[in-house]
Design a protein around this nucleic acid. Structure first.
Lengths: 109, 109
DNA sequence: CAGCAATATTGCTATTGGGCAATATGAAGC
DNA sequence: GCTTCATATTGCCCAATAGCAATATTGCTG
């Protein structure tokens, strides 16, 4: 459940696709495997990584082990982004200022 | 400059540390190498990954090649987070609702 | 232009990580 | 109790990657 585990978990496209699937709701392992051309054990491995990172959780229903999203897990990432977000918003502000200035110039012509 | 490149770039702690350093402003390669117990070529390699992902850019100043942050590069990540953010905020809303309901119950005692 | 300073490139090694087939486990249904 | 279904675990291979030392490159500076 560390920041690093989370980023590592997200660095694989298959795992990101699995998360995207889970936004739509709970799904079994076989349902999660189906869209990818990957063997079941491969998917199980990915699921383990995601669970270890705190991004999904497992429920038990007879033989099946449906997974569901733990969106709060992504807060670590969101928080990490904060200082950077501040920066790109500042850039946007400067751009807006610039546009406004240009506009003023125009109207003074 | 793809989403995958970006996530891969962020999946290494050294590279994240470098980005964090660059929030404070432009820095030379040797300045970036200094805090880490890593050889200079190792850092240069990391910088290449970050630049390829569009997260930093290089300026040329005599022999030195100072890097600066390109915070907009992180928008890809921020955008990817959007659908998930919606989910964890909904959870928060439900929590608030619950707390309010409890509060109502209390006041009716 | 010689020599130094800052960085890039190259070539190598060791580790990690994604993939698979084969097998193990555990619950359901007959 | 035996079979079947869903999934986990194990053992293996190959490719990708972080790391380094050695060397190349580029631009000052004397």
């Amino acid at each position: 459940m560390t920041l690093n585990e989370t980023f590592v978990a997200l660095s694989d496209p298959t795992r990101r696709a699995i998360l995207a699937q889970l936004v739509l709701g709970e799904a079994t392992v076989s349902a999660l495997a189906e869209p990818h051309r990957l063997a079941q054990p491969t998917i199980s491995k990915h699921l383990k990584v995601l669970e270890q990172a705190g991004l999904i959780e497992t429920r038990i229903d007879a033989q099946s082990r449906p997974r569901r999203l733990r969106p709060e897990g992504l807060k670590l990432i969101d928080d990490w982004l904060t200082p950077f977000r501040a920066q790109w918003e500042r850039r946007l502000d400067r751009l807006e200022e610039f546009v406004e200035q240009q506009h003023d110039m125009e109207s003074k012509k």
